[in-house]
Amino acid sequence: MKILDWYILKRYLFTFFVMLLLFIPIGITVHLAEKIGKILENEVPFGEVMLYFYDFTIYFAHLLFPLFLFLSVIWFTSKLANNTEVIAFLSSGVSFSRFLRPYMIGAAIVAALAIALGLYLAPMASKGFNDFNYKYLKSHKSAVDNVNVYRQINDNDYIYVSSFDAAQSLGQNFSLEHFENDKLIYKISATSIRYREQDSSYRLINYVKRTITENKDIIENARRKDTLFSFDLEDLTPVEYIAETLPYGELNRFIKKEEKRGSSYISRYKLVQYRKWSLPVSVFILTIIAVAVSSIKRRGGMGVNLAFGICIAMVFVFFDKIFGVLASQSDFPPLVAVWFPNVLFGILAFYLLYNAKR
């Protein structure tokens, strides 16, 4: 690797990590100022608070990874342009594509970090961050959809509870329907169902089992019945942020299981799955846009490039968020929602790059 490559690559990575170190403490300070009242009100142990802000640091960095990268590339490339270093590079016979090469190497390194962060560190941090939020900061809210839960638990069985209390593993107005070849074979109902952790069984109150035969229906009753099922009540109502907390392999298996169960959160889960790979791609796209925008020396100096870059970054974040909400709240395809901003800004990146070469 030549001197030019090392010079740009070192500044690329150095500026990016400095940007992270500058903005993360600001994010922690703002977040702490907003939440300090509830933390003190709930008398949260100091150790849990410190662990929470460790998780918040990783969660915050992963969330705004592309934005930090984009601003850092614009910053140091604008500085190169203002010092006429870009003109010196290009006038020495270096093509713009060759000038872009160390940026792409830096983007590959950052993309690899983004993959490692998204697949391993971010899920663990997200679990701690969200668990703390719902335990201390959102104690009046539930992280589960616990009203009128209707799920398919395997190829033949469907379960329903009118309400579910995760803390007590208790469901009200329970029913289980078993089908074979699209025909109802039997139905179990009870006024309540409780999971008993000591022997992994379920206790049904006012148990009724109705078995349908060709000649007559067979009805079995019991005031109380302890039995075994092939499902876990807690799995039937997973918390809203469960997908964010799972490593990639577990996430794929979880999504397949939830698709069979007819989960109402499946679009939200797939958004998390697809974003693990769209984020590294956005690193390359935003790097190209940043270089194309900031490699030209402008009359207004670095401020013009930064202002233009911040506008582009905000539009990118806007599209990413608006399509994410659209997919999670409607039938809009999650794959399109995740990749549309990358496709749109990829086209913009090639257009700006073409003009910058000229």
Rank of each mutant, 00 (worst) to 15 (best):
I3F: 14
W6P: 04
Y7N: 07
L13R: 08
F16T: 08
F17K: 06
I24C: 10
I24K: 06
I28L: 13
I28H: 08
T29S: 15
G37E: 15
E41W: 03
N42K: 15
V44N: 00
V44Q: 01
M50S: 13
L51S: 11
F53S: 05
Y59L: 07
Y59A: 11
F60S: 03
F70K: 05
L71A: 13
W75K: 05
T77Y: 08
L80S: 04
N82F: 09
N83L: 12
A88I: 12
L90F: 07
S97P: 03
V110K: 02
A112Q: 03
A114C: 13
L117N: 15
G118Q: 05
A125Q: 04
G128E: 05
F132T: 01
N133S: 10
N133W: 01
Y134K: 02
Y134G: 01
K135F: 03
K135V: 02
S142C: 05
A143G: 14
V144Y: 02
D145P: 00
Q152C: 06
N154I: 10
D155L: 13
Y158H: 08
I159E: 00
I159G: 01
S163P: 03
F164D: 00
F164H: 01
F174T: 00
E177A: 13
H178S: 13
D182S: 12
I185N: 07
K187D: 08
K187V: 10
I188C: 05
I188R: 06
E197S: 11
S201V: 00
Y202E: 08
R203S: 11
L204V: 00
I205G: 03
I205H: 09
T211F: 08
N215A: 13
N215E: 14
D217A: 11
I219M: 09
I219F: 12
R223D: 14
R223H: 10
F231C: 06
D235E: 15
V239W: 00
Y241Q: 06
I242T: 10
G249R: 10
E258F: 01
R261I: 07
G262V: 04
K270M: 12
V272N: 04
R275V: 04
L279R: 06
V281Q: 06
V283R: 04
I285C: 10
T287G: 08
I288T: 10
A290F: 00
I296S: 09
I296L: 09
M302G: 05
L306C: 06
F308S: 10
I310N: 05
I310V: 15
A313R: 01
A313T: 04
D320C: 03
K321A: 12
G324I: 08
A327F: 07
S328N: 14
D331C: 02
F332V: 02
P333N: 09
A337V: 04
L344K: 08
F345S: 06
N355M: 13
N355E: 13
